[in-house]
Amino acid sequence: MGGGRFSGLSERQRSYLRHVFQHRRSHEIAYIEGVSARAVDKQLLLAKDLIGATSRHEAARLFAEHEAGVEGLYPASIAPSRPAFWPLPLPLPTRAHPLNLLSWKQVLAWGVIIAIAAPIAITVAAMLIVALMLLSGTHLR
């Protein structure tokens, strides 16, 4: 498919597309090639239509890629996978991940975990202190 659309280009059209790829304007190409700017525009329009490009610059880029042997890539049919929600990455920077790029769902999950775990941890710590005080015989007055 890619080679077929370029095989119909004339040598003149190929030359003009190379000039366009070098960012030359029609009047510059005309001066270099010894033709009129109108003739250059006409040949570039034909080349653009033959290649199926939307502009002469796109046609020149596609032709340059063709000459360089670059194959056109089709878009991937499979969307990139989303980062896993679970297990939650740590909300603090680590050596392995100096930047933490948590999604909003992961931030929300960490918020819920901290909101539940903090009161439980404080209660357990207070119970431990009271138990140690009772074992040691120290009383609160």
Rank of each mutant, 00 (worst) to 15 (best):
A64M: 11
K48N: 05
A53V: 03
I78R: 14
L46N: 10
F63E: 06
E67N: 09
F63Y: 15
G69C: 04
P75K: 08
Y74K: 14
A64L: 00
A60S: 11
A68G: 03
A53M: 04
L73D: 12
F63T: 05
Q43T: 07
S36E: 05
D41M: 03
E67L: 12
A53S: 10
L45C: 02
T54P: 04
D49V: 07
I51N: 00
R38W: 09
Q43I: 00
L46V: 13
G34M: 04
A53N: 03
R56V: 11
L44E: 07
A39D: 03
I78P: 04
L44K: 08
A39C: 01
H57N: 13
G69K: 02
E71H: 08
E71N: 08
R38H: 11
G69M: 02
A64K: 12
S36P: 00
Y74T: 09
L44N: 09
S77V: 12
G69Y: 03
A64Q: 11
V70W: 14
D41F: 00
H66Y: 15
A60H: 07
I78L: 14
R56C: 10
L44Y: 09
S55N: 11
A68R: 05
I78Q: 15
V40F: 03
V70K: 15
G72P: 04
R38F: 10
P75A: 09
V35L: 05
E67K: 12
P75I: 09
R61P: 00
H66M: 10
H57L: 07
F63R: 05
